[in-house]
């Protein structure tokens, strides 16, 4: 599962395309302030696929949505810095932001059935985006939409352009979502658990399609998933999130083949696959922390079997254990 080559590397160059620096996202809609993202640092090189791995509530989707600034502005605050292609996303005006969304960066959502407008034909939804960003007329945009449906291998794309979302299956709709996301040639693709809501057989097809598209167009990609297998399949690099922080990041083979952080180790041990039949699943004890009342120091310490007094004394440092592999844990701190 983990011994994959790095074919995506052909597009990779060393200059960073996305730099996220000390990203903090808080929600203040209810009584309490919820700290969903607490200082995420991520660097994405051009053409690289980063898998953002973590369980529900770890802040991976919020990080993605903060990057697009599509969190509800009245109830959320984003601080820190997000630079994409040399521009600061958090400083963009509404106009610039609208150009950035769907143009330079586009997003694929988890539930294709809920993410397309039910009263618009799918073709028109792609055309709308193409007209908006590519500055061409509707007729040319329709040809572009047709081409995009062909990329994602939708059978009889011509007739599908005039179908409504409720007339298509979940797998087909996710292909439409992917076609929509790719239609304006984005440089950055954000995929928010794009296979989670699909049937198992369809999941693999869509995953393979996404990998094919990424190799064909070479977009820098962030792929959010809670599925270790999916992350292993598609990523060049993996960043593991817990309680709104990246606790470990590095090349996919290193992080998943030789995990250092106790949480990553636990996550890998609790993953189910065929060879484990009959064995006891080693789940991580306890439950994820309350994001409104984060524990002092390391957020994972209450569940960690290596926990020591130093863990709760202060925030754990981010330690580089090799040139490209960081772990946020006191156990790796140089003495």
């Amino acid at each position: 599962m983990l011994n994959r080559q790095t074919p995506g590397a052909t597009h990779t160059s060393d200059e960073p395309f996305v730099t996220i620096d000390n990203l903090q996202v808080t929600f203040h809609g209810g009584r309490q302030v919820v700290r969903a993202v607490n200082g995420v640092d991520l660097v994405l090189k051009t053409g690289e696929v980063t898998g953002l791995l973590g369980e529900s509530g770890s802040g991976k989707s919020v990080t993605l949505r903060a990057l697009m600034r599509i969190l509800p502005p009245a109830r959320s605050t984003i601080t820190g810095s997000i630079r994409v292609g040399g521009r600061e996303v958090l400083d963009m005006s509404d106009r610039d932001l609208a150009d950035f969304r769907g143009g330079l960066a586009s997003m694929i959502f988890q539930e294709p059935g809920l993410s397309l407008d039910p009263v618009y034909k799918v073709g028109d939804q792609i055309v709308e985006s193409v007209v908006r960003h590519m500055g061409i007329d509707k007729k040319a945009a329709r040809l572009r939409a047709l081409e995009a449906l062909e990329w994602v291998h939708i059978p009889s794309p011509e007739t599908r352009l005039d179908a409504y979302p409720h007339e298509m299956s979940g797998g087909m709709l996710q292909r439409v979502m992917i076609a929509l996301a790719l239609s304006c040639s984005p440089k950055l693709l954000l995929a928010d658990e794009p296979t989670t809501a699909l049937d198992a057989t369809v999941q693999i097809q869509v995953l393979l399609l996404l990998r094919e598209m990424q190799r064909k167009f070479g977009m820098t990609t962030i792929f959010v998933t809670h599925d270790v297998g999916v992350a292993a399949e598609i990523s060049d690099r993996v960043a593991v999130m817990y309680a709104g922080q990246v606790v470990e990041q590095g090349p996919v083979g290193e992080v998943l083949g030789d995990p250092k952080h106790p949480y990553t180790q636990g996550l890998l041990r609790s993953t189910i696959h065929g060879s484990m039949r009959g064995k006891r699943i080693d789940a991580i004890a306890g439950s994820p922390p309350d994001l409104a009342n984060l524990p002092k120091g390391c957020a994972f310490s209450p569940r960690c079997k290596y926990a020591e007094p130093a863990c709760t004394a202060g925030a754990p440092p981010n330690v580089a254990i090799s040139a490209d592999h960081d772990v946020r844990c006191v156990r790796f701190e140089a003495p």
Binding site: R65, M68, I70, A98, D99, F100, R101, G102, G103, S106, M107, F109, S115, L116, D117, E128, S129, R132, H133, L180
Partner: peptide
């Protein structure tokens, strides 16, 4: 949200 993410005004 998806419409906003498409960059529509």
């Amino acid at each position: 949200t998806a419409l906003r993410a498409k960059g529509l005004t």
